[in-house]
Design a protein around this nucleic acid. Structure first.
Lengths: 339, 339
DNA sequence: AGATTTATTGACAGCGCTGTCATTTCTATC
DNA sequence: GATAGAAATGACAGCGCTGTCAATAAATCT
């Protein structure tokens, strides 16, 4: 038999409402009463019934994570972060993979959310830029937080990292290790990160007065295969680059594999940098220097923003979380080191 | 303003209870009435309030997926499968990563489930073999389905694949491609799959009257690194094997990397087989022949068993789902082919 | 046709909690 | 010590649905 708030009330000799006040940290409860209630609750191992709370307060204590199939690794980390925040606040995370491919993601979302009245929604790319989804959310009046969106929305907080800065740091790091001829492999067109990461590369090159050779810029699409193709072009040049910065790890893995096929030893003959710090980065030989995105932290922050919305006054439109340059063997070229 | 069951009842000119009956597919409603209610519900775009349903019926329409950090890929697929089943039944999936490392997973589970009264729990390895967790679940009287458990529990259905058979098929396939000297890399001790996969290898070797050379059996722990070490041993033998079957993809990747370092071309000089069909298997060059586990299907089945429990009479203790041998380039040795 | 069974429908309480508002108790003030 | 105001507490309705059981309508049987 589950203990209810009534049981606790009886034991603590107060009214149900007072128990409710204590358990929800509402003000205006005498210290002594509070303690009495707390110990009664503890003794009875009371825990509230979510459905009842939800029904009475028209909240659900549920946060939904909507996503459309990016890498399992990305999602897993977002989930972990979001769950951390949920646990800390007695919320729960329900997940809903969506497929934007099949026509109207909007409809799907609508059906889902009409039935399950969650208190907030976390949106990951590319969903966070889908007009339909966004407008449904607005019309249903459900708060949401986009993770790493391309477009900012007025009045909506988002969480993101600074791709430009991260990419700048990687490039700067390569330059400081003595590289002057640095190839860059772009990501998928239309993916927001693609332009930003390239921008960072540009800025770093400019800062150190290095000319960007057009031949050193290759188009990719974030896939391993495109990394292979790009590397074949880059390394087939008369004067090939001494370092290649691929804008994600999968493409970097492609570069490493081409290099090894060509007998170009990494990192001594060619340094390779990636981006994302996927599990692959550590599996590769040599292990990959890369950028660790604050994925976990973004998930956590997103959930937190939904659970404890900041007061309107101090709303920042978006929160930037810190990335980290992870230095491993693939760039260990034993050159000039003035780091 | 959300429409309620009362609105529908009024429009269809019946009682609330009748609407409830129709919407829950209960028997004993006249066909005409049913249609009237259905069209009214449709017109009003009615959708039930989960919290209210839950409170009234003491169900939650929530299934929990408990897991302790296996590969993101594994979890992602289990999730997808489970969600498919949930969607089909108007259920929702909440996920709860756990850490068995920190002392008492049991306690954590207990707290979680006391608060969130889910209708069922899906347990993935290694959680599904944790005595504490299982006993909590039993004492809380929450139905659960273990996925790929080591131990069977009386009266509890589980879902699993046939590791022995799958491993047998891989080995048999290698044999039929002309290999006689086949190395095997074991997985992590204590992981249930380890013994089963080895067993399959043994059975196939026996069936074809091939002697198992002890030197051809290497110990691994499912990590890339252990695959590298095992491969170094195996390929350093005077008479090295012509094929290596690593009992997961990460270790197989290790084998491929060692082979390429030694100038042993895969697949012509060495065939390599893996297990799991992780994304890595397709990224590798050459792409990896491997076994695809029915992970998605297991997740789906598990959720289904929870949502629609089979009648006691026809309870099977466990359900085996089909795996699939995925043949790619890493075993394409152009030999005898009598497949 | 009347009696009996069976199918269909509805009235109503109540699931466990919180919001509202009334009531009581304390504290500060003059 | 009386009074106003603030702080603490409680009574009670009701969130939206379903379970129970009673009432009614239809079907079946003598």
């Amino acid at each position: 038999m589950k203990t209810t708030i009534t049981d606790v009330a009886r034991l603590a000799d107060v009214s149900m409402k007072t128990v409710s006040r204590v358990l929800n940290n509402e003000p205006n409860v005498a210290k002594k009463t509070r303690e009495r209630v707390l110990s009664a609750a503890k003794e009875l191992r009371y825990s509230p019934n979510l459905a009842a709370k939800g029904l009475a307060s028209s909240k659900s204590y549920l946060i939904a994570l909507l996503y459309d199939n990016p890498s399992p690794n990305y999602i897993a980390n977002i989930q972990k972060g979001a769950i951390k925040a949920c646990r800390d606040n007695n919320y729960y995370l329900v997940i809903e993979p969506l497929s934007m491919a099949n026509a109207n993601a909007g409809n799907e979302v609508e059906k889902l959310l009409e039935r399950l009245p969650v208190d907030g929604v976390i949106l990951t790319p590319p969903l966070c830029d889908d007009k339909d989804v966004l407008s449904i959310l607005r019309s249903l009046n459900i708060p949401y937080v986009p993770v790493a969106p391309t477009i900012e929305i007025n009045g909506v907080s988002s969480v993101k990292m600074d791709d430009v800065q991260a990419s700048f740091e990687m490039t700067e790091y390569l330059i400081k290790r003595g590289h002057k001829k640095i190839g860059f492999i772009k990501g998928h067109r239309g993916h927001s990160a693609t332009a930003l990461r390239y921008k960072g590369y540009e800025l770093a090159m400019e800062k150190f007065n290095l000319k960007i050779d057009k031949n050193f810029i290759a188009e990719g699409d974030f896939s391993f295969k495109s990394g292979v193709e790009a590397a074949e072009n880059l390394l087939g040049l008369n004067e090939p680059p001494t370092a290649i910065f691929a804008s994600n790890d999968d493409m970097a893995a492609g570069v490493v594999s081409v290099a090894s096929r060509l007998g170009l030893e990494v990192p001594t003959k060619l340094s390779v940098g990636g981006f994302d710090d996927t599990p692959l980065a550590q599996i590769l030989f040599p292990q990959l220097t890369t950028v660790k995105q604050p994925i976990y932290e973004m998930g956590q922050m997103a959930a937190n923003l939904l659970i404890n919305p900041p007061a309107k006054e101090d709303v920042l439109p978006s929160y930037h979380l810190d990335h980290k340059l992870i230095i491993r063997k693939s760039t260990d070229n034993q050159n000039i080191l003035d780091n």
